[in-house]
Design a protein around this nucleic acid. Structure first.
Length: 506
RNA sequence: UCCUCGGUAGCUCAGCUGGUUAGAGCAUCUGACUGUUAAUCAGAGGGCCGCUGGUUCAAGUCCAGCCCGGGGAGCCA
């Protein structure tokens, strides 16, 4: 008889018992509407004065938001309600009271919400995001397991940096300095030589003081590594993996996407179509606007974007003035005034975003126009380039000078066989990988060039001394993938407890 | 580290070229209403205007320094 909201469909017309929390309450004379959540979903439960004991009705009238309770009642189908069902309550019992719940039934700023992340996770939106994150993780495991991969874990304490460039978190390891892992990549290679095809799934740490919507100090990365794989096979695998994951999530998370208001057409396209594969040279030609794609150029599209932002900004400013005028003019009914106030709050937020865009787009255009051939792409370059595409693209064969030391070079020695996967809708790089260098001489040369301590890489060079084979792999940033799939403004909402520059609690 | 925007009630914000006692909505509490979807309606309580110093008869408002946060650059998944 105790069941969950997710299984209400099995009990239409029957009596059930639910255990959960009060997510919202609306009172009326003789009638109380409770939105109850139990982790599996949300459901409106109606308490009517003439259907329950007086003490029970009094409890319903005053029960605080996020109080925990058990209730029993009859399940009724009602398409208007969230989840499609309603419970007509016969009995309600308080389990744990809750008074003055801090997260109100209105919009909050990001800082306040992050300070209350332990409670924010209970809200509908966060529930949907975490369910999608879970579905993505589970689909990734299914994909790799059925493709014959073995999951193996790389260490988190490491003695030195993988790529001398990024800043690492230093800790004390029995008196010696140790660093939190910024990638399991090198260990992945060793494990692939033992098992053929492996993938790691674990936390990764970067100490860069990045304050952008794409960065976290602690994030989760999936890193497959395959023996006897070249760059093309690597790209085939990436495409198959993303197709599999997107198809699974689209199928399993319809309700979650609906809660998030996520238009899934781009995801659907990306789940079926092949991803364009561009060399670095081709990508640069598109980026700088010299090369057309489907009759347009990056710079042309950005020009149009900027114009659209300005037009929208004007409209927002005008609407704001009108609504503020109305409020000041007074004589509005209270409901109308509330509606106006809410609209003003939203418009102000939109105006801020538009102003950011208006300031950023010209800078991005300038940066794209002045892009120097041979450089790595910056965050804005990825955004600019991706204006041309509505499915992920793969950019490969990069100038070897700007890429990691372990990437294999093309026969002419000019390019590194790396590949970056860029997501559409402005999300940028979600995957970085490539074919690994097998020539021990080229590898040692690169280690010197990057001024890395040779003795720390002796074990890694052993992989080339004893039965080296062509091999490839890549790293998928879980939070960036979740952010794109959910179309969130910031990766901080994609992980239960984000760790980023300036944020260590809760 | 640099550029840029911000910090006013529990929350989201207004407060003009300095000028009487600091404003709104939401939330909370009290009351009204038998189908609400951020319910609605009437009323009440609620403020070291980020911190320190300066200019001034007078500072939430102007100036300087510091602290904290948003966005972006660099770096990257």
């Amino acid at each position: 008889m105790v069941t969950t909201i997710s299984r209400l469909a099995e009990y239409v017309g029957q009596q059930v018992m639910l255990q959960g929390w009060v997510a919202n309450r609306r009172n009326s004379k003789g009638l109380v509407f409770l939105i109850v959540r139990d982790g599996s979903g949300f459901c409106q439960c109606v308490v009517a004065a003439d259907q329950v004991a007086p003490s029970c009705f009094a409890l319903a009238e005053h029960i605080g938001l996020e109080s925990s309770c058990t209730l029993s009642g009859t399940v009724v189908r009602d398409e208007r309600q969230i989840g499609g069902f309603e419970v007509q309550v016969r009995d309600l019992q308080l389990v744990g009271a809750s008074q003055d719940y801090p997260i109100a039934k209105k919009e909050h700023g990001p800082d306040f919400l992050l300070d209350h992340r332990h409670l924010w996770l209970r809200s509908q939106r966060q529930w949907a995001i975490m369910r999608i994150r879970n579905a993505i993780i589970y689909a990734l495991h299914r994909f790799f397991q059925q493709e014959g991969f073995v999951q193996m874990d790389a260490p988190i304490f490491t003695a030195n940096a993988v790529e001398g460039t990024s800043t690492l978190f230093e800790t004390d390891f029995y008196g010696s300095p140790a660093y939190l892992s910024q990638s399991g990549q090198l260990y992945g290679e060793a494990m692939a030589m033992a098992m053929g095809k492996i993938y790691t799934f674990g936390p990764t740490f970067r100490a860069e003081k990045s304050k952008t919507r794409r960065h976290l100090s602690e994030f989760w990365m999936i890193e497959p590594e395959m023996a006897f794989y070249d760059l093309d096979q690597n790209m085939d695998l990436i495409e198959a993996m993303l197709h599999f994951v997107l198809q699974a999530v689209l199928k399993e998370c319809r309700f979650e996407f609906q809660l998030l208001n996520r238009d899934t057409t781009v995801l659907q396209r990306s789940a079926e179509q092949r991803f364009p594969r561009l060399t670095y040279e081709e990508a640069v030609a598109l980026l700088t606007g010299r090369q057309h794609h489907n009759g347009t150029t990056t710079l042309g599209l950005l020009e149009a974007d900027l114009e659209a932002v300005r037009k929208r900004k004007e409209a927002v400013v005008r609407e704001l003035a009108e609504r503020q005028q109305k409020l000041v003019g007074g004589s509005l009914r209270k409901g109308e005034a509330n509606f106006n106030q809410a609209a003003i709050d939203r418009l102000k937020q939109e105006l801020k975003d538009l102003e950011e865009d208006e300031a950023n787009i010209p800078q991005w255009m300038a940066s794209a126009r002045e892009f120097r051939f041979g450089n790595d792409f910056g965050g804005s370059d990825e955004t600019v380039l991706m204006r041309l595409f509505d499915v992920p693209i793969m950019v490969y064969n990069w100038p070897h000078e700007v890429k990691a030391f372990y990437l294999k070079r093309t026969a002419d020695g000019r390019w590194a066989k790396g590949v970056d996967v860029l997501a559409p809708e402005g999300y940028g790089e979600i995957i970085g990988g490539g074919e690994r260098e097998t020539d021990i001489n080229l590898l040692t040369e690169k280690i010197h060039e990057h001024k890395l301590p040779m003795e720390a890489f002796e074990w890694y060079l052993d992989l080339r001394r004893y039965g080296s084979v062509p091999h490839s792999g890549y790293g998928l940033g879980l939070e960036r993938l979740v952010a794109w799939v959910c179309r969130l403004p910031h990766v901080r909402e994609t992980i239960p407890f984000p760790r980023m520059y300036g944020r260590l609690t809760p």
